[in-house]
Amino acid sequence: MLNFILHRAGQTLIVLFGVTLIIFFMLRVMPGDPVALMFAEGDDEDIGAARAEFERALGLDRPLYVQYFVFLGDILRLNFGNSIVRGGEPVLDMVARALPLTIELSIYALLIALVIAVPVAILSALKQNTVWDRGGTAFALIGVSLPSFWQGIMLVMFFAVWIPIFPVSGVLDTRLSITRVTGAPFTDAVLTGNWEAAWSVLRHMTLPALTLGTGICGQFVRVLRSSLLEVKHQDFIDAFRARGLSERAVVRHMLHNAMPTTAVIIGLRIGALLSGTIVIETVFAYPGMGYLLIQAINARDFPVVQGVVVLLTAMVIAANLMADIIHGMLDPRVKLSGGRGNK
């Protein structure tokens, strides 16, 4: 187990290093730079001197490789720097504000996906090659293939504009407020017993969560269905029946057997979920990590973009690691080990 974790930690460092390299140089290659955006070039005044001073203050006048190593050194000391644009607010503060929102939204989306996917997959697998199965598979295919930005806009049109049951954007009705405890709005509202605000947050999160959820839901259906089908034809399923177990109990054991694989897929889809939030949060103006990232990219706010990307990457890696550990716990045959070969 320790060996496994050390091995994975090594891999994680390599991935993170690669990500810093890519994001740093991508930002520099991208047209437009933060200082130019701030100074709105073409103004009457000669701003050359002021501009040069600003660039020096931000360290943008130094050679690129020097800038990169400074950035890398800062990251290693867990110093993510300050925003260039927003009055020099520390990146970590901005992340601390946005991250809980994204986590809540992702969990909500994950729950929606599971609540839909589990019954659909069971029905599909048990009634293989029937109308139920075809319907389930078609549903999964549609879920996977719908572009989320389009689906988000459609949902807004239907359920926020035509039939206004859900709010269009934001996290909370403006007249309400939540006492901050953890930073996650729904959790805080529940913790402080502010049920009205909790309900409002839930309503605000429903459309984005539904959009995110249906996408990953389709994948869950496919994975769970195929692992159920694999289990379904095993001898031990018939052996359960031969011991007089009820069909319900048999299905329960089938699910237990299908769970490890599905848990791994869920863990691997956390990455997709987070990248989904980038689009969805923008569509719904939901001020989470994705929204923060897009805004920072538009403003060429280098430290914020770099910080958010590195942190998101770390989260995805952590989620994958968790998935593997959970897999090991759910399936007694899996032994977690480092290095090559034996698994």
Binding site: Q234, H256, N257, R333
Partner: peptide
């Protein structure tokens, strides 16, 4: 081998 549930 296949007549026993592998996860219990």
């Amino acid at each position: 081998l296949t007549a026993l549930d592998p996860v219990r």
